[in-house]
Structure formats: structure tokens, C-alpha cells
Computed example of a mutant assay.
Amino acid sequence: MSDAQTQLTINDHTLTLLRFPKRANETLQAWSAGDEYIIRHVEELKLSGSQNILILNDHFGALSCWFSQQHNVTMMSDSFIAHRATLKNLQRNQCNKIEFLNGMDTLPERIDLVLMQLPKNNRMLTWQLHRLRTQLPEHCPVVAVNKAREIHSSTLSLFEKYLGETTTSLAWKKHRLVFSRPNAMPVVDVNPVIHWDVEGENITLNNYPNVYSGESLDLGARFMLKHIPQDPELSHIIDLGCGNGVLTIKAGQLNPQAKLTCVDESFMAVGSARQNLENNLGKDRNIECIANNSLDGFKKESADLVLCNPPFHQQQTITDHIAWQMFCDAKHVLNYGGKLLVIGNRHLGYDVKLSRLFGKDQVQTVAKNNKFIILQATK
């Protein structure tokens, strides 16, 4: 891998930055032109002394590493992987320590400047803007960044409504900055939880702002619900990439004897899943909900069934390496004869990947419709 992809140099200062998890032959770099744009903008402000900087949604720690050199940095992100990547990059560059917060933690008391990568979903953005409005002093500047094509007039309307007066920069390397102040009146209240019932099922769900498909059941999960196995021999079921826990709840209803483990890299997903499992299955069930990078650290041959609805992007990048890691990890933790049940869009070709990993004879199609396919791989 060439140094060009790991060395971020601005104003004669260089950081070595890697994505997490670290992969051989990595083709993607660990920062964006948006990170560079924010860094250049703040450097031009020539901030006096050591400022208290809150950084929201740092992807792999480029902003946290850069600003930790001269300022007190708090990095707040809902992503376990972003936390881990940032920590590794801080260590790699011998940076000063920073404070880590997840998406539901309380904001620090003293904040002089907020820098943010805009989150992908508007519910998360609205929740973050609301929290900044209610907890920041009015003079505190907020600088956000995203690809210019992702910053719509509706995005700016959210800033105006929930945070305050808002302007934008010129585009640079296809990115744009958003400048805002926390002075919107009146202060609009935002409930972080959306609550709904799953049609045709005895399941009620609470969804925190950053939960995937948090406003309605996604079509893949709806299809998968009809094909979760019922088997008294199942003693441990893992839902890998659990989201709000809907698949685990169904598996738990069908298999009351089984231990249930929910895993997701979103802290909000894990929080929602924990609440939903307790609400739907009762507090005395054997359940565990973990924020993690796939199944890192899980015991070999410790599960009978892994349910998986893999994501096909990391931050803004479309990629299949997460699905591949999930499949490899699932095979590692499955008992002999254990099964991995995967749902994906038909065009993603998961059958080829699973055949490579488990053997062609061990992979079968459970069900398919015009959009999705459910595959079962047996170890």
C-alpha cells in the first residue's frame, strides 16, 4: 500500500491514518476531503490557546488526531468502529488523550467549538442539532461538512430550525462547509425514540435516532422474519448486525430455550435492541447486547445459529468487506453443524462468497423474492 493513502499532510504537519479494521491491500484511505476542508478552515482561524473542541461523527479519527495536538478534544460518535479506529490512530501518532463519548452520552459542560461530519440519516442529524441547541452557549460556532451533493436545502432547513442561523461555504474538492450558531427560537423539542408495532407480528419496537431503518421495518428484515427457524436444539443464537433487534425478538419467541446475543457496531442499535428484547421477551431471558466490530473476541464454536442482514457500506463508502468479515466470523463461532442464515439483495452475490467459505454443498437457498434472497450456510 502506498504512503499516499496513509499520510495526511497539511501545513507541513503529517499524520499516519489507517482505517479500522486494518486490512491487507487496503484501497480506501482513512480520511476524506471533508476532513481536510475542516482542518484547513480551523487552521486559518488561528484559535488562541487551548480550546475545548467537540467533534461529532469523526469517521476514523482524522479530526480527533489533528486537533488533539493543541486542544482538549471530545470525540462523540455512535460507531464502535469509529471509536476503535480513532483510538488506534491516536496511539499510532502519539497524540494527546481525548475523551470518547457515544451518541447517547451527556455532552461535555464546556465547549468552545463544534466540528461535525454530517451523519447519513436526518433523524440523527435532527437529534444532534437539538442537543447542541439546548446545551451550547449562543456564541459557540458549529462547523459541519459533507459532500456538496449531500447538503440539500432541506439539510440547511434542519440547521435553521433546530440549531440557528446557518450559512455555507463555497465547494472545495466536492465538499462544502456549513456554519451555524445555536440561537434558533423557539427551541424545538425532539424525542430521541420512535415507537411502532411490527405489522402481523406480536412485536413492538423502540428506535433511537441512528438505528438502521428506525422509522419502519426494512423489507429485508420483513422477509427474513418469516424464515427464522424454530428448533429446540438451538441453545445460542447470535444476531450479527442486529439493528433494533427485531430478528432476535422473533428468534426468541420461537426458541424460548435459547440464549440470545445481539451484536452491532452502533451503540444506539445495541441500546434499542436491549430495550426491545426486554420489553418483548421479558427481563428474565438470557440476553446479551454488545457493541463490537463483527464478532471480535467471541469464543470459537460457541453458537448454533447466526442471523445476519449485512450492511454493504462503511461510512459513505459502498463495500463488501464487512459482509465478508461477518461471514468469516460467523463460521468461526458456529458449532459443527451450526447454521448461518443470511439475507441480502439478490445482486450482491452472497451465495458465491458463502460457497467459497463453507463449501458449495453446504450452502442452500431458503427463500427468495424479486429483490431478496435468504441463504443458509452449514458448518
Rank of each mutant, 00 (worst) to 15 (best):
S294P: 05
L305G: 08
N72R: 13
V342I: 14
R84S: 14
R346D: 06
V211S: 02
T319R: 01
V190Q: 09
T9L: 03
N335A: 10
C95R: 15
L348H: 13
F327L: 06
K283C: 01
I151R: 04
P311Q: 08
Y336E: 15
T86K: 01
A323K: 09
G245L: 00
R346G: 09
H332F: 14
G200I: 05
I39D: 07
T126H: 02
P186F: 03
Q275S: 13
F159K: 09
E301C: 02
V178K: 05
E265C: 04
H321D: 15
S216M: 11
P232E: 14
L254D: 12
I228M: 11
T14E: 09
A291M: 00
D296C: 03
R181Y: 13
P256E: 10
N89A: 08
V187I: 15
C262S: 12
V73I: 15
Q69I: 00
L234P: 06
I203G: 02
A303V: 01
E36Y: 02
A323S: 15
Q325F: 02
I318Q: 09
V73W: 10
F372H: 11
V306P: 04
D284W: 00
F372C: 03
M185Q: 14
S235C: 07
E160N: 14
H236S: 07
V187S: 14
D218W: 03
E199W: 04
L225S: 12
F298P: 00
N207T: 15
F267L: 01
V143W: 14
L205P: 08
A323M: 10
R149K: 14
L170T: 08
K371Q: 13
G338Y: 13
F267N: 05
E233K: 13
I10T: 03
I98Q: 10
N210P: 03
F80E: 01
P119M: 13
H139G: 02
K331A: 14
T166I: 06
V352A: 14
M326D: 02
A184K: 09
I238W: 03
Y37I: 02
K299D: 10
L8H: 06
E278K: 12
W127M: 04
M104P: 00
H83I: 01
G297C: 08
T167N: 12
H83N: 09
Y350C: 11
G49F: 10
V114C: 11
T16C: 04
N279E: 01
T204G: 07
L240E: 00
S32R: 07
N280M: 05
R149F: 04
V193G: 04
A62S: 10
S169A: 13
R123K: 13
G241T: 01
S272G: 03
G214V: 04
A144W: 04
N276L: 00
Q5D: 06
V187M: 12
R19H: 03
L354Q: 10
L334H: 10
G282K: 07
W66P: 13
S294E: 05
